[in-house]
Amino acid sequence: MLTLDKARVEFGGLTAVNDLNMEISKGQIHSLIGPNGAGKTTVFNTISRFVNLTSGNIKFNNENILNYKPNEVIRLGITRSFQNTELFANMTVMDNLLVGLHPLTKKNIFSTMLHLPSVRRIEQENRKKTIETLELLQIRHLEDEVVKNLPFGYQKMVDIGRAMMVNPELLLLDEPVAGMNNVETKQISELLLRLKHDFGFTIFLIEHDMSMVMEISDFVTVVNFGKKISEGVPAMVRNDPAVIEAYLGGEDVSHA
């Protein structure tokens, strides 16, 4: 589904992503792990086109992603959340999610100006869809809250919710449970599994919570200094000496 072919990103003298080859298969939860500064978020930024590749290629469903701008990637069926939540802080939860529907919303400035019935109908349909997503995320009660007033855990939920709005084929989630407690982490894990099983989402996940990664992932890729050092099913990666050495300095991954 998504293929990174010798993807390389250099920032001046620093190589953030070093000739990375990867393949993400449809319908899987694929996790990308590695120590801080390993280049994981840069990989996300290249897929979502915020960072250009120095060399190499990225293809999604045989389409060259590099031909697209950041705002066009969503039309391919790829959406993302951000490590440090990038939300519309002064907008309500409802409006944040409605922005997520932007690419699917038919717009005409003249009918909008005249507030024609077609505009009202589309707005109602969008709100209905947003409410369904809020219910799925179990944050319906927050729909009118301004996002900046919410605790961090809920903000993360809104970030994920916005990325879910267009029913993407591939959902990129950058540390979705960072800063969350155990209950919230469990909730997100269940949500991701549900998105995979019930809605057929493919999820590409960056996460530091190893127990969560090992529990829900179908496939794990490990990077260090921008280079792939291991990949495979969680059980295999967990016991890979290279991973234990590079990532944890000798400890068992599952206890991290």
């Binding site: 039309r75 959406t79 519309f88 916005r162 990325a163």
Partner: peptide, 11 residues
């Protein structure tokens, strides 16, 4: 509010 988030939302 956030040009990056706006772009990633398809704007």
């Amino acid at each position: 509010e956030s040009e990056i988030a706006a772009q990633s939302s398809g704007i």
